[in-house]
Amino acid sequence: MLISQFASHFPEGTLSLAKDCKIEFLAYDSRAVVKNSAFFCFSGTQTNGNKYIKEAISNGATLIVTNEVEELISGISYFITKTSIRTLYAKASAFFFDYPATKLSVIGITGTDGKSSTSDFTYQLLNKLGYKTGLSSTVFVDIGEGKSTNNFHQSTPEAFVIQSLLAKAVENNCKYFVLEATSHALSKEYDRLNSIEYSYCAYTTISSEHLEFHKTYQHYIEAKENLAKRTKNKVLIYNNNKALSEIKAIAGDKLYLLTPPLIT
């Protein structure tokens, strides 16, 4: 992907082009920048990526993607936008890997509890049925080469990692990919899963969680709703789920109600 291709694909910003070169990597951490990287300046609770622009350039960044810039450094291209840098990072990651989710049947799993186990059970079942299936969960990852431990230190990794996993699964001829989707990753603030359309999704239990981040239960539910909004076929949920009415309003006729098993 050339810098000019990136800019033309995302008209929501203005490009100051120094040299049109190929982008080899998309980074949000200046320490991870390599030669010919695009560096996306995330704003966080403790710091701001703009403080690390010079370090990113020193490490090889040739394009800086930011909401604001204090100085234009000679020889460096800048893409300045008013939109969310995190959302743009997710969109750019999907573009970088040529939208691999469109070449798979992606199954999203979310909820308060049971995400990892449900993801793993679904992954195992599909493989047992003869459908080559990839996986990304808190515990395990499989890109079609066999299950390995998730070493990304995030239940749902950042967008570039997720898109790279999906791309590898496509290369390895996977038909399905089971993706554990956390409320953080689904939230409008982090938006790591932007540009992924799901064939199916499932909700486990829903209760109050991560309110230190979401602030209110309603915001937590709104993040979870984003999974149903991006699902094109069936949305699976138990008929006693606390968030049933909210998910039903989003899913409409895509809703598929499940009955919890009787335990005696």
Rank of each mutant, 00 (worst) to 15 (best):
F6Y: 06
H9I: 05
P11R: 04
G13C: 08
L17M: 09
I23S: 09
V33L: 13
K35G: 08
N36L: 10
G44A: 06
T47W: 12
E55D: 15
I64L: 13
V65D: 06
N67Q: 14
L72V: 08
I73W: 14
G75T: 14
I76G: 11
Y78M: 12
F79D: 01
A90S: 15
K91G: 09
K91H: 12
A92R: 05
S93C: 12
D98F: 10
P100Y: 15
K103T: 03
L104P: 00
V106M: 07
D113M: 02
K115C: 01
S119D: 11
D120N: 12
D120H: 13
Y131R: 06
G134S: 11
L135N: 00
L135H: 03
S136M: 04
S136W: 10
E145I: 07
S148H: 13
F152E: 05
H153L: 12
Q154I: 01
A159S: 14
F160A: 04
S164Q: 15
L165V: 07
L166C: 11
C174W: 09
I196C: 04
A202E: 14
T205F: 12
H210D: 08
Q218E: 10
I221Q: 08
R230L: 06
T231Q: 04
L236S: 03
I237G: 02
A243G: 00
S245M: 13
A251I: 07
